[in-house]
Structures are given as C-alpha cells and as structure tokens.
Design a protein around this nucleic acid. Sequence first.
DNA 1: TATTGTTATACTCTATAACTATA
DNA 2: TATAGTTATAGAGTATAACAATA
Lengths: 167, 167
Amino acid sequence: MNQTSLDAEQLRAYFALTEVAGLLKHAVEQQLREVGDLSFVQFQLLARLGLGSDTGSARMTDLADGVVLSRSALTYQAGLLDKAGLVTRSPSEDDDRGVTVTITEAGRERLEKVLPGHTEVISHQLFQPLSAKDVRTLADLLSPVRDHMRSAPPRSAAPRRRRRDPE
Amino acid sequence: MNQTSLDAEQLRAYFALTEVAGLLKHAVEQQLREVGDLSFVQFQLLARLGLGSDTGSARMTDLADGVVLSRSALTYQAGLLDKAGLVTRSPSEDDDRGVTVTITEAGRERLEKVLPGHTEVISHQLFQPLSAKDVRTLADLLSPVRDHMRSAPPRSAAPRRRRRDPE
DNA sequence: TATTGTTATACTCTATAACTATA
DNA sequence: TATAGTTATAGAGTATAACAATA
C-alpha cells in the first residue's frame, strides 16, 4: 500500500478537496469576521460548545484536540473568547488540573447571530452544486476518512515533552 | 434555495470536510517542513509551476488566483522561493507590467525530494479508507463544487479597488 | 513521574493601503 | 483610468519550551 505516486483520480480528488476547503474557509472567515467579529477557530470553538455539547462546556484538552490546535494556541483563543465574554473558564469538577470552558449567554447570542449567514455561505458555496443524495454520499465518504485520520494522528497534537534531545 | 439552517446530513458533510481538510493540512505541512523545508503554500506554488505547467512558468496574478492568496502575500512567498533559489522572476514577455515566475532546476529537485513523502502522507491519511471507486466518486463530487466556488467567488481574491462603496 | 494548562517568546504568514510602472 | 506587482506596516495566530500545580 506504499504507493510512490498518486494516480490521476487521486490527484483529482486531492486537489479538489484542497481547493474546496481553502475557498470555503476563505468565504466563511469573511462572513464570520464581518457579521460576528469571529475567526474561524473561534467560531469552531463556540459551535463545539454551543451546538456540539449538551452542557455547553468542554475541557481545554478536548477542545484542543477537536479543533486540532496546540494547547498554547487554544489557551490564547480561549483567552480571547473569555475576554470578549463569550465563554467562561473554571476549574474542572473532578480534576483540579483541568479547566472547563463554558459558553455564556452572550456566546450563544453571538453564535445565533452568525449562524444564519454562516449557513447561507455553506449552502451557497458548498452545497449548491450538490443534490441531497450527493451530500449524503460526501458525508459517507469523508466520515470514515476523518475517523481514520483521528486514530492515526500524524503526530500533531501528540508529543509534548521529548526525552532529552539536547540541541 | 436560501436555507436558514443546514440539515443533519449537510452538517455531517460540512464537518467531515472541514476536519479532514484540517487534519490533512497538518500532516502534509509537517512532512513538507521536515523533508523539504517548505510550507504548504510554497509547495503548492512549486507544484503548480513544476507539475501543473508545461513551461515551468506562470504569472504572478495567475499564481495568486490559483493558490487563493492576496497579491502581496504571493509577492512575499515568491520572494522566499526566489531567495532560496527555487524560482526565478523575470519581466513577462508580452506585458511589461507582468512578472513571470519560473521554477529552477533546484526547485524541481526540491519538488522531487518532497514528493514521495508527500504522496505517502496523502495515500495513508486520505486514501487509505477509500476504494478506487470511492476516490473517483469523491473527485466527481468535489470538482463541480470547486468550479462553482471559483466562478462565484466570495469576493476574496476578486476586487482590488472598490468602486465606491462608502459602506 | 505524568498530565493539565498557562506564559513568554519568537516567528511565519497575511491583508490593507500606498506607491511605481506599464497598458 | 485600470491593471500588475512591490513595499511598508501592522496584526493575527501558531508552536516550542519552560513553568506551576495537581494526579
């Protein structure tokens, strides 16, 4: 399975995926910035708390993993959201080392404010050319890929402290 | 067609796409940096010149559009590649305003050096869970989307000087 | 000793606006 | 006047490493 080159179809799929994701991110970022003064990462975090969680809370590490971000980068972003009053941070109940991030009412409002336009961008830019069936197919294709990538991390968020490694 | 919310399947597809693209970019960037000391954008530029062009050349604006980058950002990146000896820049033949970027021999070598590992990452991370047929389906689904997004730009790379638009 | 999170730091990258030169 | 590209600038965001506190 160790190919040394991609075939034509793979290249086509790879490039299409890359370009679509890039263009989509662009479009989304612009809308989020204009309407809600949020970056994409910040929106992802709010969405994860406000939509992806029943409690409206999550732990720092889980959030970092979810958005594929280093811990320090997450601390930075969480700090911004905190300062903006969109989330609060408090010590975790069970583990005193942990920090629980919770979306505030203002955070939910911001999310609501941004969501319609966000949805519209996604609908227009991404789903316009696709049928309902296409959408399902796409999700069915990409979901396993995501799971696979998550389980076989390229070592992004993994290692934290090297052994010695002088130099 | 102006939905105000995405249905479950759309959300699934959207999130999967976002996550896959994010994770993939992470993995790719790491490999490129380690093996070839290249960022993803720089690799894209080299690939576009070395693989996507017969002449090994392209104009600045075309490159900027291709990679979805502002002109100044492209100037910056082209400057880095130039300084590294991977491309050269010269006045365009026909249009004296233009600049033609050309990949050098060293640039091609760098590309060759990086390509196998790059391919391997893509194969492992992206295509592992997909059959040949899946790959084709994926490409068939995303290609029209890309074309659509390119033709209906969210106004990222498009306008350079607004008409009036006193906001 | 390992893990969680923060901080200090340094760096990469990006876009905006102003500018030059050519069409 | 419009377009191609560069430059200056300023800001956003990221990761690494060192650190403190808890498990």
